[in-house]
């Protein structure tokens, strides 16, 4: 499964990998939701450094997680977005809801 999960204190970091499309998003969603339910973080960081492709299914994935986190008042950060991923993500207006950092490149 192209998802690596690290939990430190109240911060849960999920390192996503590979391509996020409609086909791949389902498995990622299940992994993330299970980890959130188990760890109950106050901050969820989704790391996109190793994501090579994303379409609007990735936006759906982020929006869905944001809605879930709102129930417990937890925050969402999006981290290390490569340029092509950021280009898709910014169409969603998610920047108003979650903190985004574009990474070093």
């Amino acid at each position: 499964m192209p998802v690596n999960i690290h939990s430190v204190g109240e911060v849960l970091t999920v390192y996503l990998e590979g391509e996020i499309d409609h086909h791949a998003a389902k498995g990622m969603r299940e992994e993330i939701d299970a980890a959130v339910e188990f760890n109950m973080p106050s901050l969820l960081i989704l790391d996109f450094d190793r994501v090579t492709f994303m379409d609007s299914s990735g936006i759906g994935l982020v929006m869905g997680r944001y809605k879930n986190l709102q129930k417990s008042g937890a925050k969402l950060n999006l981290s290390n977005l490569p340029p092509n991923i950021y280009k898709v993500m910014k169409l969603s207006g998610i920047e108003k809801l979650a903190k985004i950092d574009k990474g070093e490149n």
Partner: peptide, 21 residues
């Protein structure tokens, strides 16, 4: 229309917006 979807919560409703842009 951006954000319009008939497919429920996990779809962003941005497919055509992405194609257009």
């Amino acid at each position: 229309e951006p954000l319009f979807t008939t497919a429920g919560g996990e779809r962003a409703g941005l497919g055509f917006a992405v194609m257009e842009s």
